[in-house]
Amino acid sequence: MTPPPPPSDITAIDRALVPSGLRVMGAFHPTAANAPSSLTTVRTIVLIGNGGAAFWPIFTARRREEDDALDRWTRRVITPLAAAFNAEAFFPFDGPPYFPFQRWAVTANCAAPSPIGTLIHPRFGPWHAYRGALGFAQRLTISPPSAPLTTCRDCAAKPCLSACPVNAFAAEAYDDDACARHLKTDDGHDCLNEGCRARRACPVGKEHRYASAQAAFHMRAFLRTRREDAD
């Protein structure tokens, strides 16, 4: 069977993602400097993720009762899409070694690092994530990168730095131990059920903030990962 042709432009991928609530977050042409050596045949990487919470009700309606429910649902969405566009699917949860999705997002000019390490999108702020990617053997046409993102640099108040109740972001690196300990206390219920206070303090994209159910899902997933790492 003749393989399907690649999309004429990346907007075709975006249209195909509409039923899932996911979207194309950006794209770039990989080089030896920004992609693993295993991707030498890939000439275009298209990042797929959620901007805001649009995908959440779709996921909750279609999720299955299984471990790693979001990862498995993501795979069920993106894998057939890759086949339809004659591309290879990549996921941030496959590994080790893991694909450098955060670095790819910066390379694609989707987002820029914030003072607390979270990537900030110019529209969605901290309320976005990268769920997968499509790799094409062809060099697809992509929009040229816009001007460098300056959202955090232009934020004088930087409320994210003072919002954490346990100062998990006070040092050079994120203190995930302090964060996890806090989430297990009565005082940590706000962060556990509503999401990270430092993240919520960001003024960018507030209208795209995750609802309580989605925030709690991700915070509990973080705690489960911590327990699995300790085992």
Rank of each mutant, 00 (worst) to 15 (best):
A111I: 11
Y98F: 15
F85I: 01
Q102F: 14
V77C: 02
L81I: 09
F85Q: 01
Y98K: 10
P80G: 05
P97E: 03
L81Q: 03
G95W: 11
A108E: 04
W73R: 00
L81R: 10
R103E: 14
L81C: 08
S114V: 01
S114K: 08
N86M: 08
V77A: 03
A108I: 08
F85C: 05
Q102V: 12
L81D: 02
W104C: 03
F93V: 09
A84C: 05
P97Y: 11
G95S: 07
A105S: 15
T107H: 07
D94L: 11
P92F: 07
Q102D: 11
F93A: 15
A112H: 07
Q102T: 09
C110N: 08
C110M: 13
A112K: 00
F101D: 05
C110S: 15
D94E: 11
P113T: 09
T74N: 04
A82W: 13
N109V: 07
G95L: 05
L81G: 00
A108G: 10
A111G: 15
C110Y: 12
A82H: 06
A87N: 01
N109K: 11
F85T: 00
P80L: 05
R103M: 10
A83N: 06
A112T: 15
T79V: 04
R75M: 14
P96Y: 03
P96C: 07
T79L: 10
R76N: 02
I78W: 01
F101K: 07
G95T: 00
P96S: 06
T74M: 12
C110A: 14
T107S: 06
P96D: 04
T74P: 01
C110F: 09
P80S: 10
A89E: 02
C110I: 07
P100S: 09
R103G: 14
A83Q: 06
D94Y: 13
E88I: 08
T74K: 06
P96E: 04
P100K: 06
T79H: 08
A83K: 10
N86A: 14
A111L: 09
D94K: 14
A82K: 08
F91N: 00
F91E: 00
F93C: 06
A108K: 12
T79K: 06
T79M: 11
Y98L: 12
P92N: 08
A111P: 11
A105H: 13
